[in-house]
Design a protein around this nucleic acid. Sequence first.
DNA 1: TATTGTTATACTCTATAACTATA
DNA 2: TATAGTTATAGAGTATAACAATA
Lengths: 174, 174
Amino acid sequence: MSPAPPPHTATAAPDVTQTIGVGQHEEPHDRDAQFRGTTLASQVQFLTARLRSVGHLHANQLLQQHLELKVRHYSVLSLATSGIGPSQRELSEFLSLDPSQIVSLVDALEHRGLVKRQVDARDRRSRIVVATEEGQRVCHEAERLTRASDEVVLRRLTPGERTELARLLGKVAF
Amino acid sequence: MSPAPPPHTATAAPDVTQTIGVGQHEEPHDRDAQFRGTTLASQVQFLTARLRSVGHLHANQLLQQHLELKVRHYSVLSLATSGIGPSQRELSEFLSLDPSQIVSLVDALEHRGLVKRQVDARDRRSRIVVATEEGQRVCHEAERLTRASDEVVLRRLTPGERTELARLLGKVAF
DNA sequence: TATTGTTATACTCTATAACTATA
DNA sequence: TATAGTTATAGAGTATAACAATA
């Protein structure tokens, strides 16, 4: 059995030399370790995509199950509850979503009575999205759920490591 | 220590208290800082999603521009080049993609002569995906590009911080 | 009977352009 | 003329089910 094969080092053409000729059975554990030892698995962007994938799935299920809400609706609701009074344009920019997507998200939240649109007196073209009292209640519950999701997804990190991860992400995410 | 102002604390209906009353002009910088001080902006999963969004966009453009490749194709090509000889099923699991998606990705790479399917002698149902010589050349170039993309996206981090970020992500991404 | 790859299908998400109302 | 929001539409991404070959 190959103990810890350094992968991909300028291997010419010898196809699957590591795979063939090794034996007939691969332990699942060793196999997974092989994948994690890959060049791809060492790249930050790949790891980031993977983390966001598992996290998004988990948080989405949790929100859907308890509040019939999705992460993307929650992110709008959260900013509408924050007190900073975001316009739809600002929501679009900060959430990296197209303005047309914000429309449907706010529509959905408005139909459920969680937010309302207010015409900005200083520029009557723009609509400020603010949470209703019910929306605030739901938002706080959603925040509790998403924090719980963070806890689960980051369970392998110590509290100090979680803080550090948040700090590092904060430096590059904006 | 609580440097970030705790936002949103049960503000009843007073809409945009922070926004109104300050003045008639909002500096873009202050406004952005308000968004970054939000509860949402402090949650790890939100930051992760944002980082992956900007990173994915950047890397995708770079790969498309230089190699007419997308990140998702690169990830398959990279594992096909790694020497571990992944089956399509294994690619599906490690990349968190549906088996049917792997089919079209491998099809595309195969049509370009970058990979080929080999029937696994030990289980003739499964196909091992291996890179051709040309595929290996393209892969190494793609790795160079994605590393460059990482450099750009993480430019605000010190080398030590990048290593630490990769380590923390590695602990939670699997 | 169960699994791998495949195909077909539908659903969600994302991106683009055109329209309106305000500026 | 330019911008905020809206609408419509198409494309990319994702999920599901059914099928053939093999185990």
